[in-house]
Structure formats: C-alpha cells, structure tokens
C-alpha cells in the first residue's frame, strides 16, 4: 500500500525537492464565506482555489421541473473570459458526479443549483472543484446519500506518480487521472483521464488516490465540526 503525508504549503517545495511526490497539498476552507447563499465555501488545495456556492432546494423553472426528483444544475465560471466548451464538459462531469451524491428524490419539483467560480488554477483544478462543491453542499445541509471526494494523480514519463500535481507536473506528465470516490466504501464514482497510461499504472494510481482521499474526507469532517460547534 502506498503511503503519503499532508504537508503545509510553505513546506511543499522542500518536500518536493526531496523527491517524495506522494503528498497532498495542504487544504484550507472557509465555510459560509458568502452570506446570501444557502451554502458557500472557498476551498484551497495548495494554491489551487475555487469558490462554490449552493442554492437549494429552491424554486425551479417550469421547463426544467422533474416531478419525482430535484433538478441538479451546475454552473462553472472560469477565472477570465466566458465559459468555453471545455468548461461545459467540466460542468457535465461535476453534474453527473454530484447527482449521484445528492438525495434528489427527497425534494421533488425543486432545483439545487451549484455555482463554481475558479479563482486560481495551479494544478488539480477538477479535484478542487469537486471537493469545494461537496463542501458547499454540506454547508447548505442538502440531503445527500454520501459525500464525494476527488484526488488527482499525474503519471510521469518514467512512470513516477505525482499526487495532487501542480500545473508544472500536469504539463510534464504523460497522463493525468482524477479519481472521485464516495465516502461510504471508497468506491470509484468518476474517473477523468487525460493521456496514455497502462492498466498497471491506473491501478497504482487508484490505490494511491484511495489512500489519499481518506485525508480529504477527514478534512471535510474537521471543517464541518468547526462550523457546527461554533453555532452551538
């Protein structure tokens, strides 16, 4: 089983110099960073940051209404410019992943909309977006079957693995895979891959990500504990 550690951002460079690439960059979250929304969070994983907000269960437009379940809507806003097709693809990935997690049948004829604003993309952006939207859903206390947590793994030419890669690692790597797990049995929910990789590499990345995702879930628990115990 692969091992990994969580390091603080300031120690990251030193850690990577040492050559141990199996590190998850330090995470920080600010739950309820915006006040008008039902749920909001600003999540940073290392230097990659995104803000996610949730409205819901709210009123739904009549043409999007589903009589047996809530309509899940995801909007992704890039840092600069208008959303492009690649962002649409990311919206679709997020929507499919989050729809599985949200208990949509409990709120029929309503809409749960999730809006993600990219604030800084310095590698592993997709996993940051997935984790921030899950935290925003937790902040809004939307009913969910389970939580989702994502980890990105980059594979280098020499088949070295980099967990939670930075932008530089991502461009140098021959392939980048984002694994999304559910919180109950740590089963794979979504895979988003880019580039070439062998089956063995995929499996190695999977076991590495599965170990790392436990710390993401632990981070969710700590963040929520802090928030909920504050309003006690």
């Amino acid at each position: 089983m692969s091992s990994f550690t969580v390091v603080k951002t300031e120690d990251l460079d030193a850690e990577q110099e040492k050559g141990s690439a199996c590190v998850l960059r330090g995470q920080t979250s600010d739950l309820g960073c915006l006040t008008r929304q039902d749920g909001s969070v600003s999540l940073s994983q290392g230097d990659t940051t995104s803000i996610a907000v949730v409205y819901g269960p709210a009123e739904v437009r009549i043409n999007k209404e589903q009589i047996d379940r809530a309509t899940v809507d995801v909007v992704y806003r890039p840092k600069v410019g208008l959303p492009r097709p690649e962002h649409r693809k990311q919206e679709r990935i997020l929507k499919n992943t989050l729809e599985a997690a949200i208990a949509a049948n409990l709120h029929p004829r309503s809409s749960i909309s999730i809006i993600i604003q990219e604030t800084e993309d310095l590698g592993s952006n997709l996993s940051c977006c997935i984790n921030s939207s899950c935290l925003a859903l937790l902040d809004a206390a939307v009913s969910m079957n389970f939580m989702v947590a994502a980890v990105t793994v980059a594979m280098k030419e020499n088949s070295d693995m980099v967990l939670d890669p930075m932008k530089r690692d991502e461009t140098e790597a021959k392939s980048v895979i984002t694994y999304v797990f559910d919180s109950m049995k740590l089963q794979v929910l979504t895979i988003v891959s880019n580039g070439k990789f062998s089956r063995a590499e995929y499996k190695r990345g999977l076991s590495l990500a599965r170990e790392a995702v436990k710390s993401v879930l632990q981070f969710y628990r700590e963040s929520m504990s802090k928030k909920l115990l504050m309003s006690e």
Partner: peptide
Amino acid sequence: RIVLPGDT
C-alpha cells in the same frame, strides 16, 4: 457528536 452524510 458530528455526523456527516453517508455515516451509518
């Protein structure tokens, strides 16, 4: 204590 979605 704190519980989160997915706990059983």
